[in-house]
Simulated scan of single mutants.
Amino acid sequence: MRWQVLPTPAATGQAAAEAFAQAAREAVATRAAFHAALSGGSTPRWMYRALRELPNVPWEQVHIYFSDERSVGPQSPESNYRLAHDELLTHVPIPEAQVHRMEGERRPLEDAARAYAALLPARLDVVLLGMGDDGHTASLFPGTQALTATDRVAANWVPQLNTARLTLTFPEINAARARWLLVTGAGKAEVLRAVQLGEEEYPVARVQDPVWFLDAAAAAKLRD
C-alpha cells in the first residue's frame, strides 16, 4: 500500500487537494485536459473546501465526472453531485459544460448508466474514491451484482440500503491513470488493516495500486 497519513480530516483533505491541483497541471501540460471523477460521502468535503482556495488550478481545462451517485436528482441533499456543486464547483471557474453529472433521477437507472458510459472520456486521469465501514467503494457494496460488472458504468441494486445506485465499475476504475482513496475516521481502521494484510473480501481491495490519503484515526492499525 502507498499512503499518506495526516493528523486530521482537514489536513487529509488539504493533501488530496494539493495532489489534485498538481495532477491537473501535469495533465494539462501533457494532454491539454484533465479528466477526474469525484466521489461522494462526507470525507471529500474537506478536499473540496481546500481545493477551491488553491491558486494555479487550470480549471478551464478540467473535466469533472463522478465515481457514483445515489438514485436522486441534483437538488437532493443526498446527491453526490450537489455536494461537489455546493462545496467546490460554484466556487471555481470551471465551464459548466465540463461538469458531467450522473443522472440519478433517470428511470430506468440502467438507461442512466448507459448514457454515462457513453460520455466518459477514453481514460480518466484520476478517480477519487472513498471507503465505507463495510469496505465498499464508489457504490460497489459487498455482495452486490456490480462487483463483477464488465461495462464501464452499472446500475447497482444495494439490498442492505434498499436502493439502487449508479457506479463506475472496477474495470473503469482500474483503467484510470490514478486511483486515490480518501479515508478518514476510526471506523475505517479495521478494514484498512485487513486490506493491508491482503484480505480480499472487501470490495475496496479490488482497487488496483491506489494511493491512500488517510487521517491518523483511520491509519491507527496499519503497520509501518
Rank of each mutant, 00 (worst) to 15 (best):
V5N: 07
V5I: 14
P7T: 04
T8C: 15
Q14Y: 12
A15T: 04
A16Q: 09
A16K: 04
A19N: 08
A23H: 02
A23E: 05
A24C: 14
A24L: 05
V28Q: 09
V28D: 06
R31A: 13
A32G: 15
H35N: 12
A36S: 09
S42K: 12
S42L: 09
R45A: 15
R45F: 15
R45E: 15
W46A: 09
M47S: 05
R49E: 14
L51F: 08
R52K: 15
L54V: 02
V57H: 03
P58L: 06
W59G: 04
Q61D: 14
V62E: 00
V62I: 13
F66N: 00
V72A: 00
S76M: 09
P77W: 06
S79K: 03
S79M: 08
A84D: 02
H85M: 09
E87G: 09
E96R: 13
E96V: 13
H100Q: 07
R101C: 13
G104W: 01
R106D: 08
P108K: 08
P108W: 12
P108I: 11
L109G: 00
L109K: 00
A118K: 09
L120Q: 06
L120G: 05
P121M: 07
A122S: 14
R123S: 09
D125H: 08
L128N: 03
G130P: 10
G132R: 01
D134K: 07
G135N: 04
H136N: 11
A138Y: 03
S139W: 02
L140H: 02
P142Q: 07
P142L: 11
T144M: 04
Q145P: 10
Q145E: 14
A149W: 03
A149E: 10
A149Y: 05
V153R: 02
A155K: 02
N156Y: 08
N156S: 12
W157P: 12
V158F: 06
Q160T: 11
L161F: 13
N162P: 06
T163S: 15
A164T: 12
T167V: 02
L168H: 01
A178Y: 00
R179G: 07
T184V: 13
A186Y: 12
A186E: 15
G187H: 05
G187K: 03
A189V: 11
L192Y: 06
V195G: 01
L197M: 14
P203W: 07
R206Q: 13
V207I: 11
V211M: 12
V211R: 05
V211E: 06
L214Q: 03
A216F: 12
A218F: 12
A219G: 13
K221L: 15
L222S: 01
